[in-house]
Design a protein around this nucleic acid. Structure first.
Lengths: 356, 356
DNA sequence: GGCGTTGTTTTTAACGTTAATATCAGGCAG
DNA sequence: CTGCCTGATATTAACGTTAAAAACAACGCC
């Protein structure tokens, strides 16, 4: 776009360096670097000229060189779990997307981490990655009480933030989480408002802090309305387990008429149980799930569930990391977000023609 | 684990360099580099000694330095799409996981790419990423006829492989795909084998090559059995569209008794239509989907569908890229894999108690 | 006019790696 | 003994960036 396009010809895919920009602007390479990273060290006039040259040549700093020099790569690592066959693929897909979007927005890139087995393999994978390349920070998911990963990352001094609060009251952990208790309470309130008084809960095993949290919400709502909280199950998170638990609660002497579940997977298990008994979700028994997995909108009738604001989770995680990296002296961020109740046919008695 | 652990003390998280290993082994840094990258240039004895030192110090080459020096980062980029609300999140989750696993296995890492809007934004995002850091290769998904991304990447000379074949007979493209035609044929054969003779097809709009391919499979099977292929719909991939199309085919003068769909999303739309009409999937109307999305196993009854061998897809894509990078002079790989029919209750007339 | 001060810019060196070249020792033919 | 080749190892330089230090200019102050 200028008169000196003769100098280089059709560069393969632009490999403009600091030195080239420097020459173009008639300054040293360091000044160009400063123009971009330490604007206040330059005379305003010079800076303007340099930025023009940057623009003109389409210069982008080379991240490898930066990483080498600065020991910081603008990479954030995240480890995916293998998706289990019978789980409703809890929004990993979406979560990764929004996390990456937020990361890019903030000038980072997401790099995926892979670990063979579960427990210690993950830590080894983190360590290997750190040795091989400089990783600015990690994002953890599903942290639990006494999490080894937290201990490891902390001992290495690597910034990280967790999707899932600290369950052992560790204030120094930066986390973002969704209020499962409030969510389950909202779901219970919702079915109670439909007139149900025999409201059961199908949740996870006691060792799951997350499951415990969600169960509390159901208890809260029952207590508040002075309903008996006698119908409950603590099972693994699978369709089969949800199905069996539902059968038990429907076989009880005073059977449940509404079932509040700790996950969509469990709720879908309840739907299967109703299907096997020839009962209709919503009409005969109200069902609520948790997560608003893609499946929830696609089954018939639609599944009432709680939507986690994952886009906000992603943004907040990146922000938390950004703060950590900036050496922000304030407390690491703790963000607790509210889930949103999404009402669909599975919890409504009415006619459901064309309900989504 | 050695006598000279005094030299450094508790190194933060291992930052062993080539020079340190060299000193330990009593050779130059270059020899260590050669021991790892050009084994045949060293005397066997020396090499052994060097490798011992590498092992002892736990040395891992620094990827940033390598990337800078070699202009190759061992990074493979992949762009995620935002998941649309009413789609059965087609296995992106799993795909990413297996792709990353295969990448790590082969010594690469996956980095996620983010683009704002759809068409040209993606190309811009690729270019920006390439400018910023050296990316060894790209993985594309859902390529279509005359794909601009293919043209762009090719013009830049960057290796890439595509999940989705070349629809314009371009032999120089490396791709891995799943045989949609064979899959749909298998599904059609399956319902025909149950005695159905009025088999409809709900597929995608004509401009989708993938949809066209799947439709062909249905046509193949109909022709072979001399069945009329008059019941068909070409619609967008949404639950609503599938639902409406199903209603039409069930309102026909000689209504469909089986519906073969181009996606699970459409098939779930059919299920909704049956639900609205008080009909039972499998018993009254047979349904098949495509993709074996997580949802398929979770609805009741389970949805008969076609499972794509995505783990194999992931492996083959990485392998294809590996071959490209090695400058393998043979034709770029073309791999067409067979999907697997997964039979569940939605296509079976029989009693379905406890079917998964 | 000497001399610190301040503000701006350049020079030097280093991050860790590897291609290219240089060095060196030993073997062997002339 | 000289010269040349071969195989093994060492040295140099460079990839593109930036922190730290050095250089330089302009300015006021005694």
């Amino acid at each position: 776009m200028g008169p000196q396009h003769t100098s280089r010809g059709p560069v393969p895919h632009g490999h403009v360096t600091l030195a080239q920009v420097a020459q173009r602007a008639g300054v040293s390479a360091q000044s160009v670097s400063n123009a971009l990273n330490n604007p206040d060290r330059l005379a305003a006039e010079t800076r303007k000229r340099i930025l023009a040259a940057v623009e003109e040549l389409g210069y982008e700093p080379n991240l490898s060189a930066r990483a080498l020099r600065n020991r910081s790569s603008s990479l954030i690592a995240f480890k995916m779990r293998p998706s289990r066959p019978d789980k409703a693929s809890l929004l990993m897909d979406d979560f990764l997307y929004v996390l990456n979007a937020a990361a890019v927005e903030a000038g980072y890139h997401l790099i995926l981490c892979h670990a063979e087995d579960g427990p210690a393999g993950e830590i080894k994978a983190y360590r290997d990655l750190l040795k091989k390349t400089s990783i600015d920070a990690f994002v953890l998911a599903e942290t639990h009480h006494n999490d080894d990963r937290v201990a490891a990352l902390r001992s290495w001094g690597v910034p990280f933030a967790s999707f899932g609060r600290s369950w052992d009251g560790d204030d120094s952990l930066a986390w973002v989480d969704v209020d499962g208790r409030a969510g389950t309470r909202a779901a219970t309130d919702h079915v109670a408002a439909q007139g149900h008084t025999r409201i059961g809960h199908i949740g996870w095993l006691a060792e799951s802090e997350l499951g415990q949290d969600r169960r509390e919400g159901w208890l809260d709502a029952c207590r508040e309305r002075e309903l008996e909280a006698d119908l409950q199950a603590a099972v693994v998170d699978s369709l089969e387990a949800g199905c069996q638990a539902a059968h038990r609660m429907l076989d009880a002497s005073r059977p449940a008429t509404a079932l509040v579940c700790a996950s969509d997977t469990l709720a879908l298990g309840v739907m299967r149980a109703l299907h096997e008994r020839g009962l209709r979700p919503g009409v005969d028994v109200a069902i609520t799930g948790y997560d608003d997995s893609p499946t929830a909108a696609l089954v018939s009738p639609g599944l009432t569930t709680l939507r986690q604001p994952i886009d906000e989770v992603g943004r907040q995680l990146i922000q938390a990391i950004d703060n950590l990296m900036a050496g922000d002296p304030r407390q690491p961020q703790h963000v607790l977000l509210e889930p949103e109740l999404v009402v669909r046919g599975s919890s409504l008695p009415g006619p459901r023609m064309r309900t989504s």
